[in-house]
Amino acid sequence: MKEFKHQELEEATCNYSKSYLIGKGSHGSIYKATLRSGQVVAIKTPSLGLCKVQNTSKVENEARILSSISPNQLIVNLLGISHDSTGHTVLVMEHMPGGMLHDLLHLSTIGSPLPSWRKRAKMAVQIARAVQFLHESKPLIIHRDIKSENILFDSKSRARLADFGLSVCINSFDPTSLPAGTIGYLDPSYTTPCKLSTKNDVFSFGVLLLEIISGTKAIDVSRTPASLVEWSRGLIEQNKIRKICDKRVNMPQHMEGVILNMLVLAIQCVSSDEESRPSMTEVVTKMESFRYPIWVDMVQSLVQLRSRKSPKTLSTSTITVVATTSGDHVGIAKKKLLLREILAGDDVLLH
């Protein structure tokens, strides 16, 4: 692992000036910096509070986990480490200029449009592949903190999984360590150390998938019930499935089948019965089998190209014919029935 001189990191952040601060959490602070080489990076330092009590284990754990993973385009990679004057570990990470999923869904402002349904489906697959990658790593890694704040976007708008401070490498797992995660995303079945499994991540992913579809937070006290999982289950029981979908974004007919498939999968992931939850490999396989209407992007590009070259655009009839050839909305009634059947077998819902 590359060791960066801490003096260079201090220079690049003007001694960790607040003007360079781009993120802050319970475990540390993140600064944007440009190194002498011209490379733009993110520097993660342990929080002052944790340093004072000599508990920087989360940052050190993240360094251990990430250093065992080969660099890839599914996660936010570790570029190297450094040590400050007191010996605390500092991480030098890839910088993600696209921001975080949480802000994209919940803090969009004028000039910053909400993600389209096509984009949501695409990012969901990318996140699923990242979690699958961890679960298929040797040794196996459980993330334990999958949430929208830990999904960042690179310069090509690809979703990357970040923040491995709570992650566990299964071959070095401390059987006495307490369950950890974020309320709202945390698997209610994960109550003791022996309950740790990949299905905990599957539950968290299911919550995140519901968040992507609904555009609402995992926990929202202004909503009844506050839990996104319970709120979604209630609407499905009442056959008000469409109300789960983000009302701020118009859903094209050709995306209805895909989003309904995603809802079915999300409900399976958050099942109270751990055994009935799919593995992340199964999740990815199912999501990749959904009929994403790639042709829609092609038609839109063609229309834009034709409109630039000539004031005449493709005829309405041509677009209509293409737009109605999708079979994605076929069988939606069956998918709604499947959702209700899944919930019918959920003990938490029925009792």
Rank of each mutant, 00 (worst) to 15 (best):
G38K: 05
R144I: 05
N77C: 10
R144W: 02
R160S: 09
E274C: 12
S301G: 13
I43N: 08
H6F: 15
S26H: 13
T45P: 04
C194Y: 10
I212V: 15
D163N: 03
K5H: 10
P278E: 00
Q132H: 11
I22W: 03
I81T: 09
A226M: 09
S137G: 04
S67D: 02
A33F: 01
M298D: 14
S204P: 06
P278G: 00
L263K: 08
I219L: 13
F205V: 01
S155H: 14
P225T: 04
K44V: 08
L260S: 15
R129P: 08
S157P: 01
P225N: 06
V92K: 03
L48C: 04
V284D: 03
E62S: 01
E282D: 13
I65A: 08
N150F: 05
S29D: 08
T216V: 15
A159I: 11
Q39Y: 05
V322P: 02
G28L: 08
P179E: 01
E211V: 00
E10Y: 06
R306T: 15
I342K: 01
S57E: 12
V92Q: 04
D84M: 05
T86M: 00
S57Q: 07
S189P: 05
V92F: 00
S279P: 03
S177E: 13
I319N: 00
Y185T: 06
E94M: 05
K336F: 14
D103T: 11
G99I: 12
I213P: 06
S276F: 14
S197K: 00
H102T: 09
E62D: 10
S317C: 04
L208I: 10
D246V: 09
T318W: 12
V53Q: 03
V270M: 03
V321K: 11
K32T: 07
R242W: 10
L114Y: 12
G49K: 00
S315T: 15
I142Q: 04
M93P: 00
Q126S: 11
E282S: 10
